[in-house]
Design a protein around this nucleic acid. Structure first.
Lengths: 352, 352
DNA sequence: CTGTTAGCGCTTTCAT
DNA sequence: ATGAAAGCGCTAACAG
């Protein structure tokens, strides 16, 4: 019996009530109590009532830890992201948490901070805590994914833009489609000389956006002028360098598509400084829909990743494959073009 | 039936290696294996080596679930926020996760979506999962906090702007100071008629910002003109209504402080539509430093909450009080004034 | 319909 | 220095 009340924090070490207490209080066997708690097996109405009352009176909450140990199932899933402070991952986490909660799962949150060693730690912790599955955004060390599945048997869903996928479930964003639609939009707007500030020319980076760019041109019957393609690095400063090259061409482009928003914004700002009007003299489209894209004065038309959907579909896939093991499955999600003012679309029927 | 070597996911049900396997492999007793794993008690160098090798060879990862059951400690803490998709909570979560990880704890993430019933569910789940403590942002149902501590013995740290605090640890933001500094800044800039679009006149809302507003005026020897105070609701549309009242006064204010950014931005935009220049004709200061505040064209001077610090200090306090129960402790954090263009500060020595 | 019992994987006395 | 055994809270056969 919890003796004289001591109101200092944690002082009393409130011993938690267990199923044993409930059973004793209701004067039944532990297993009977368990039956009513889990609503499994036969139990007479009268007994059920007594047990339920005991539960209420004692304020009993089942210990999932004990249950998990027995059942080898924790109803927890791990989420691995680079950094939850980044709004992109935050939105992903929101989707994952919500989908998980709706299905009776909780989410153990871990951050890699972009470091391979820390990613390893995340995995170890999650394995130790016996999560039923992991949602893993853009693994740094791809081999680790396979190792986890092999060594621990934990189901993994990888969310990534990369093409490669081994035996695990994958949620992939159709970058090629995104690029295709962006370029196609520019073509619809009448452009034929469309520059591309591209992903690095390195097999480590997926070349999906490049493929989309080329496909859009080809399908429109436009021959691709290789001078209009300048490789970027995705990093700061790279958009600047690239647009300088493009604008220096004998026949400069009238529009430019960029493999990410960062480079697009730099390109815009450089062009403006050179006296070009956006979008009248140069139309610009980016990729990612990061925060700055929607800022007043930027208003960048860009390809948005379906962040929320990625998280939700990831969680759904993971949890359903937990109930009934699925063979390696790949889901392709479509990005969407967000039309703002940098592409010239709103010029057609608005103010000049 | 899952037949011969099926490489489909989860088909093989990789049985996890346990301490028993390690013990057998190293030819020692389970308790000995346990000793080396936990580096506790005596164990000969030779035996230790054997066990460590077994661990490596088998890829053994201790099962924290089993350990937790025995030790009544999970090294998990629960985080309750309104909505992790909101960048404010995301930053908080980032801080919490980092501080927790550095101390060997993991974070179980839960969202209330602002609903009392869901908040209840969060608590139940966290209690069931036996978290060692909870970091709880702005509880909807304050009584629930006390109930949790009483019934489950779980230590709670509440992060809030409200004054009230019962027996639990609290991280509080000094809203009064924030408001004081905002208004004081306007006074320094030469304003004497400073309007206030205030928090609702409802005891359910803390009146800290109001106190700060009044104190700043008083300390500067300015008599508070009650006409200059208009109550807002924190909601959309309310800033608009309020600024209309203020600008309609016989002697309208030359500056206005707003209890949150939303109302401040509405006020700015209304004033501009009426032909007033910001900050020349009307200086505006907000509260919160939400995303839109820093947008080009908005550039709102505002009071920023020390989000990261709140999370970090919360986690630190929680974890240290887990090791050694502390009596109810309260921490007061200072917000900071972020000076942008809406207050006129940069007019003094810049372009007119 | 209800109770008894054997673990889940681990830590922790208590012997040896 | 090492091992045997009890038990954390719960579920799931298996008897009755």
């Amino acid at each position: 019996m919890p003796s004289a009340s001591n109101h200092s924090l944690g002082g009393e070490m409130a011993v938690r009530v267990t199923i044993k207490d409930v059973a004793k209080h209701a004067d039944v066997a532990i297993s009977t109590a368990s039956r009513v708690i889990n609503d499994s097996g036969y139990v007479s109405e009268k007994t059920r009532q007594r047990v339920e009352q005991a539960i209420r009176e004692l304020g009993y909450v089942p210990n999932s830890i004990a249950r998990s140990l027995k059942q080898k199932q924790t109803f927890s899933i791990g989420l691995i992201v680079t950094d939850i402070g980044n709004p992109f991952y935050a939105e992903l986490a929101q989707a994952v948490e919500r989908a998980a909660r709706e299905r009776g799962y909780s989410v153990l949150l871990t951050n890699t901070d972009g470091k391979a060693s820390q990613e390893k730690d995340c995995v170890t912790v999650l394995a130790a805590k016996q999560v039923d599955g992991i949602i893993w955004y853009s693994p740094i060390n791809e081999d680790l994914v396979d190792a986890v599945m092999r060594d621990t048997g934990i189901t993994v869903v990888v969310i990534t833009g990369k093409e490669r996928h081994m035996g695990h479930h994958t949620i992939r964003i159709d970058d090629q489609l995104g690029a295709f639609e962006a370029v196609n939009h520019l073509i619809t707007l009448g452009h034929t000389r469309i520059g591309y500030i591209a992903e690095p020319d390195d097999p480590k980076f997926p070349q999906e956006r490049m493929k989309g760019y080329r496909r859009a041109l080809t399908e429109a019957g436009i021959t691709c002028d290789e001078h209009l393609i300048v490789r970027g690095t995705y990093q700061e400063g790279s958009g600047l360098k690239a647009i300088r090259v493009l604008l220096g061409l004998k026949e400069p482009p009238t529009a430019v598509f960029c493999a990410n928003d960062l480079m697009a914004i730099e390109a815009m700002q450089y062009a403006r400084r050179k006296g070009l009007r956006i979008p009248e003299d140069l139309a610009v489209v980016g990729f990612d829909d990061t925060k700055p894209a929607c800022l007043h004065g930027i208003d960048l038309t860009t390809v948005a990743q379906p962040t929320y959907e990625m998280g939700r579909e990831g969680a759904k896939l993971l949890i359903s494959s937990l109930a009934k093991p699925l063979s390696s499955r790949q889901l392709l999600l479509r990005p969407t073009l967000v039309i703002r003012k940098s592409c010239g679309y709103y010029l057609k029927e608005g103010t000049p």
